[in-house]
Structure formats: C-alpha cells, structure tokens
C-alpha cells in the first residue's frame, strides 16, 4: 500500500471518532459562540421578542464590568491554591503509599476513594455540618462554638478550598502512585549503586520519569478547579456574603443564566473556554521547552 493510501485508510478508521468528537465538542462550542453574539433572553427563546444581533456587545458589557475582573482574579487565585494543594497532598500521600505496609495502603486507598466518590453536593453539605458555627464537630473540638467559618471572606474561601482539595486529591494520588510503581526497579537500583541519596534519587530519577503523569494531573486539576461551581454555590450559599466569594462559574450562573441572560452567560462561557485553552497551551509549551517529548 502506498503512503497516501495508508493515510486515507487511517483517516477512514478515524472518521467515526471524529464525527462523535465533532458532534459532542464542536457543535456545542459553535452554539455557545453563536448565542454569545446575540441578545438572547427568555423572551427571545420562547419567541416573544425578535432576536437582536449584538456582535461583541455582550463581551464589551462583560469586560467593562468591574465585578467581572474581581471575580476573575478570585477564580484564578482560588484555582491556583486548589491545584497546588491537591498536587502536594496527592503527591505526598502517593509517596507515603509506596512506603507503608499493604493494609495501611489499602485503608488509605479506601478512604481516598470514599472522598473521591462522594457527590459534590453531599460532600459540601457534610463539610458544612462539620464546620457549623454552633453544632459543628470541628468547633466543638476546637472549643470555638459560635465561630462562623463561612462569614469571613478568607475563612470561607479556605474552607471551600480545603473541601475541593479533599475531593480531588485521590485522583492525583492514585495516578501518581501508579506512575511511581511503573518505574523500573533497575533504574532505582542503579541510582542506589551509584551512591545517590534518597532525595537525589527522587529529584533526578523519579521526578523526571513521572513528568508526563504530573503534566496530565496538573492540567486536569487546573481545568477542574477553575470550573468549581457546586462547592462554592452550596458552601457559601451562592457566592458568600455580598457576593465576596464568587468564582467565575457561579458568577455566570447568577448574573446570566438565573437572570435569563443567556447571551451574556454564553459570553462568559466563551471567555472561560479561551482562558483554559490559553493556560493549557502555555503549560504545554513550557514543558516542551524543557525538553519533554509529548
């Protein structure tokens, strides 16, 4: 078979997957962009009012809003804290899991899987119970009954961040654990024979070998934590006192979708998608520069 023929056959094999991807990914994004260019409220959806093409009007309105920038800043900072926290906790526990006895590891994994599989709404509510000002277990143990964790902006953000880390570290832990286990024993043995310290082995042997996996879990975490909705919505009662705990997704819901301003909501969605794509691209480029083959 010629090279050209081969390419064509490969393409034919890929077509079904491409069609599915196109249907599930490209079409919704197309609709999202389209809606973001219109004044599209409930009246327009149900045919009570004509459609007006706004062009970039929704974007102008959004970017001109001071609150949008505040919320965007909060979202980025919040996501950064969550990503770093998730990676540190996940990595630490993954390393721990390779060092402990089987039954300890099993217990650790079961507990982590429990956290992982708890639905976000249920998990958030349970955390709220635990941290309740008057009846919460935590306040009782600390002896600070009456202290409200969700009132102050920073304790509220901290509490939600802790919850997000709690329910997302298991993914990092399990993935990194599998990665560490997949490192050939000979390599580590060779390092040991060369007289490398444990730290040196971790830094110069294990870490580089784990890089592709760390890359994947980091990007995943960035995307997840940037899009946090449930935890903020449930735990801060829709964005905190006077909206000071809003993140982008909750802001979009409150300002646009609950208020039936679908055009504006779609614009926020497009901005978020673009931001995430940019972050991901930068990250990939930075990694490629440092010599990683992707």
């Amino acid at each position: 078979m010629t090279a050209k023929g081969q390419g064509r056959t490969a393409f034919a094999y890929l077509t079904p997957a491409l069609l599915v991807l196109g249907g599930l990914l490209a079409y919704p994004i197309y609709q999202l962009v389209l809606i973001s260019l219109y004044d599209y409220g409930q009246e327009q959806v149900s045919g009570g009012a004509p459609l007006t093409f706004l062009g970039l009007g929704n974007y102008q309105k959004l970017l001109g809003e001071q609150q949008f920038w505040t919320v965007l800043g909060q979202t980025v900072a919040f996501a950064a804290v969550c990503v770093v926290g998730t990676l540190i906790v996940g990595a630490f526990l993954a390393i721990l899991a390779t060092r402990v006895r089987t039954w300890v590891r099993m217990t650790l994994f079961l507990a982590a899987l429990g956290a992982w599989s708890t639905p976000a709404v249920a998990g958030s509510t349970i955390w709220l119970f635990l941290f309740d000002a008057n009846f919460g277990f935590v306040n009782e143990v600390l002896g600070i009954q009456g202290f409200s964790w969700t009132f102050d902006k920073w304790t509220a953000f901290g509490l939600v961040a802790a919850q997000v880390i709690w329910c997302s570290f298991p993914f990092v832990m399990v993935t990194l654990y599998a990665g560490i286990k997949a490192i050939p024993g000979e390599v580590l043995e060779a390092a040991a024979l060369d007289g490398a310290s444990a730290f040196r082995t971790a830094w110069s042997v294990t870490l580089p070998l784990l890089r592709p996996i760390i890359l994947v879990v980091t990007i995943q975490s960035i995307i997840w934590d940037f899009k946090v909705f449930t935890q903020i919505y449930v735990m801060t009662n829709g964005g905190g006192i006077a909206g000071r705990n809003l993140v982008l997704n909750v802001y979009a819901y409150q300002q646009a979708f609950a208020a039936s301003e679908y055009g504006l909501g779609a614009a926020i969605g497009v901005v978020m998608t673009v931001l995430l794509l940019v972050i991901t691209l930068f990250y990939l480029r930075a990694l490629r520069r440092s010599g990683e083959v992707l």
Partner: peptide
C-alpha cells in the same frame, strides 16, 4: 456561518 445562522427560537405559542 455565524452571521447566517441564528440561535433557535420556538415558534408562536
């Protein structure tokens, strides 16, 4: 394509 197509609207009720 973007200009030619418009978001869906439901018909007269």
């Amino acid at each position: 394509a973007v200009v030619a197509c418009a978001p869906v609207q439901s018909g007269p009720t």
